[in-house]
Write a protein that binds this DNA or RNA. Structure first.
Lengths: 202, 202
DNA sequence: ATATATCTATATCGTTCGTTATAAATCCCA
DNA sequence: TGGGATTTATAACGAACGATATAGATATAT
């Protein structure tokens, strides 16, 4: 908005970078599990700087959710939209879900929204609306991809795009959940061919 | 186990009742959200009594999980197993999931395992194994119900019982999640006919 | 009745939490 | 070269947390 140089000492950190770092902390530890010390250390700033820039912990959390939604960091959905062949796209979506749900990285398994934010729905004020909006948005994107195939004639005109989009979303929720509970990627992969057929059935 | 009268002052509370009360507190507030004060008040006992009987907070939490699994309190699964007609059973399962996921009661929405325990997987030591075992057990029960129908000849011999059981489970996870995010029961019900057909397809 | 063992309640412990005064440091502008 | 504005770091705040030491209460056993 305001590109004019502001008076006073400038920020010693990048707000974007700090937010992305905060996302990873919440992602790995959850809202309650992430202490202010965890956050300030990972963000490379001190407590007062954090409060001045983002408000309190809850406000920071909500901003990480908004940021995550903005940068469109959800790999499975991106994969789904990028692949031209619809069957491969569905398979790619599920495969991406599974790999991200089971990859033993820095603790940021699954999707930030599905793995972390979803666990604070109904617990942290302000999360519910954002989560609902995120689910709506995802449902819509998935459905639109199917609608595209209906226009192309690949899928029949009466294909229930919305329902199948939601189905895919719920499958993701299940896979992420199982991954967090310790399921291996291989065992989860046993299901995907059956599921691809379900999603695309008539 | 030991029915002989024990020496010393007897317990002033029932351990079962106290555990059930603790379940509801965790269910409504989550593991971190449930304070010892919340727990002792709901359980009707004082702090030291709680610690003497159940250990620390985490041990109590794990015991509530075990207890919940034992009493078989998961309504959707019970409904699924009770209904003789398999299609009605599947529909009943999903309907029960949705109603319990959206019923605005005392905060104990969904299933204790799906709504609360699942959010502490990877966060609280000892939860992972229990959750994995619970999922395994549920998958098995759902699959066995399908196997029964295969024996009866209602479902074809090549019906993938295990896969469809897992599918139902993942659908539940999705519905519970959406319910927590604010979805209404009616909007969730829009999906179920399509889903019943999916689960029983081929 | 006394001794012993167990449970209960009050009160408090030390931590850790999220949050914030305070003051030094760093920049723009005049 | 100051003066004003803003950000920084240190330190500490009150509150709430989970967990306990202590002492009183209540049962059985002898």
């Amino acid at each position: 908005m305001n590109d004019t140089k502001r008076i006073g000492r400038p920020r010693g950190f990048d707000e974007n970078d700090a937010l992305m770092a905060a996302i990873n902390v919440f992602w790995a530890k959850g809202y309650d599990g992430a202490s202010m010390k965890d956050l300030t250390r990972a963000m490379g700033i001190s407590g007062p700087s954090l409060y001045a820039a983002f408000g309190d912990k809850r406000a920071l959390y909500l901003k990480t959710i908004d940021r995550y939604a903005d940068v469109d960091a959800c790999a499975p959905i991106v994969a789904f939209e990028a692949e031209p062949d619809i069957e491969k796209a569905v398979r790619g979506f599920l495969t991406s879900v599974i790999s991200s749900a089971t990859d033993p990285g820095d603790g940021t398994r699954g999707c930030f929204l599905a793995s972390c934010v979803s666990t604070s729905v109904g617990q942290v004020e302000g999360v519910d609306e954002r989560m609902e909006k995120a689910i709506d948005g995802t449902d819509l994107r998935l459905a639109q991809r199917f609608d595209l195939e209906k226009q192309r004639g690949v899928l029949p005109a009466d294909f229930p795009s919305r329902l199948r989009g939601r189905l895919m979303y719920d499958m993701r929720q299940g896979f992420v959940f199982r991954g967090r509970a310790g399921w291996s990627g291989e065992s989860l992969m046993e299901d995907i061919e059956d599921r691809v057929q379900m999603i695309l059935a008539i």
